[in-house]
Design a binder for these strands. Structure first.
Lengths: 224, 224
DNA sequence: CCGTATCCAATAAGATACTG
DNA sequence: CAGTATCTTATTGGATACGG
């Protein structure tokens, strides 16, 4: 049984292979399985705990998450580490190489947002929202603006630093930002991308900046 | 039975969905199935026939190819058309929107080529080879060079135009290029990326240029 | 909290043969 | 050439229950 399982797992890696030297084919062997890229997305801004991943990947089951993390680790894309004391909890983080796929993931998301079938009203994880700020950012619309915009999304806090040509995201205390959006990530997404009124969430600080901020992330034009 | 099939196909689209507004999740619903991105890769430089796709996607079976093409068509990524007379054969081509995923596909391939497990000795389709020229191109190494390099790879011919900052690929008659590489795509790949000697294929034209050309596509450094 | 172990159902993929 | 039709296999994913 032990042996059989090993054989099966090897088969899983071998038989389902694309026999193709093309880098893309290899990419799909590395991160092409269901959930794999979404897990990597969740690791974009730093290490995450198992339960956090499970919570933000709506619909994944524990065993699938375990399996994907193990595969990604075996392939050198994810690393299992322990946070320094006093936290000392076990976390997963992307390796340096693994981190390099994040811009591509973001670009894929931007591409797909042009689909006529894209439904932006579905739930959105905090990381998805932060990533959307980076991929949809319009430098032209932000001309001359520099600001720190904070987010309190459930357990996690982020700061988006708007600069001349890009937005940098840090997972860190939002206090001290020029303006802070607070609420669950779905509601905040509604305000940022869906045009929902501020009253649906909490907005503290420079409200003028908040209003301007919302204009910086135009949705790409629909295809077709 | 008819009805059952419809129900099943809807289930395939619905149940396997990621419930996630994130663009990436939608991208994976659009092109995340096995073979889908590889099919799009094959459409990068123009329309292709069913049999050509099947031949270059080593290992795909006819029914899977049929199904993928139908899905991609339904999603607005691929279009089924007929070549103008006198050819008048039926072909598949990427839509304008579908074409925009090509650079992302190329970047994914380049990322994956850094994997310690990447095996560059496997077979490589003509399109893969052409795409690798674009993704691995080093503008620094090509400083001052402008040239047209032709390829005759089995049935298909391509011309790579090396410019200041990029390589453009066209699927067109190779005649008139400054140098022409001919052979099956695996052998030519061996020469271009594997350091195999010219004798394994046919090289006609400016041999000095051919030698220089080989230096323009450094493999990215391995991760880990 | 962080998983592992087991089981079941759905389905996708592959092989093969066949048709307009 | 361009696919369908059919059948078999095995992988995947999801649910549940359990252990450190």
């Amino acid at each position: 049984m032990e042996l059989e399982k090993v054989t099966k797992s090897l088969a899983g890696d071998d038989k389902r292979r694309y026999d193709d030297a093309c880098g893309l084919a290899h990419a799909l062997e590395l991160v092409g399985e269901r959930w794999a890229m979404l897990i990597l997305r969740e690791l974009a801004y730093g290490p995450r705990r198992f339960s956090g991943l499970k919570a933000d990947l709506s619909g994944i089951s524990a065993n699938v998450l375990t399996q994907r993390l193990a595969e990604l680790e075996r392939r050198g894309i994810v690393r299992k580490t322990r946070l320094p004391p006093p936290a000392s909890v076990q976390v997963y983080e992307a390796t340096e190489w693994g981190l390099e796929i994040e811009p591509l993931i973001g670009a894929l998301g931007k591409w797909a947002a042009r689909s006529p079938n894209h439904n932006p009203t579905l739930p959105m994880s905090p990381v998805s929202l932060m990533m959307s700020l980076q991929t949809l950012f319009s430098p032209e619309r932000a001309a001359g603006l520099e600001a720190r915009v904070g987010f309190r999304l459930g357990e996690s806090e982020y700061v988006a630093s708007v600069g001349r040509e890009r937005v940098d995201i840090e997972r860190t205390d939002a206090a001290g930002s020029d303006v802070i959006f607070s609420g669950n990530s779905n509601d905040v997404t509604g305000v940022i991308h869906g045009g929902a009124p501020f009253e649906t969430i909490t907005v503290e600080g420079d409200l003028g900046l908040a209003k301007r901020f919302l204009t910086l992330f135009p949705l790409p034009p629909k295809a077709g």
